[in-house]
Amino acid sequence: MKKIISLVSFVFVLLISTSAFAQEPADRLIGIWEPSHGKAKVKVEKIGSKYYGKIVWLREVKDPETGEAKVDKNNPDEKMRTKPLRGYRILKDFQYTDKDEWTEGTIYDPENGNTYNCIVKMTDENTLDIRGYIGIATFGRTDIWKRLKMPSKKK
């Protein structure tokens, strides 16, 4: 009986592990990405069933005006203007549809404090078309993001 329970447990854990580690098409968005301007790196993570991207690297970490770490000073919400940009979540609420697209999300531009509707399209495993737009996708701009290698864990 003990052996049967152990066997069932093993199969159960194996199944869960397999499903956890097999990358779903949607999870290909997870990773570190560099926008075309090269001024930042964005880490995309999955939280619940949605995808979010936060700034994890800035070419210019400090605000030249204050000498302090850059904050989200252009945010229309005054309470957010003291929040550090590094660590800031600029991609929010993306859901995988199909055809290599993640939709229903928004992208935030810290340089002007605007939030745009956004569609993410994976054109190949290492390239994203990030289209921020206003109302309808025609009135928008597409930026190409490239996948970066995952950082090695520090010892």
Binding site: I32, E34, K41, K43, I47, G48, Y52, K54, V56, W57, M80, K83, R86, G87, Y88, R89, K92, D93, E125, N126, T127, K146, R147, L148, K149, M150, P151, S152, K153, K154
Partner: peptide, 24 residues
Amino acid sequence: QTDTTAVEEEEEDYSMYDNLDFVD
């Protein structure tokens, strides 16, 4: 399932992202 759409509060060692090459 926790909603963490708010700004990330936890500390992270961001220096690990300093030198990353393109996958391609």
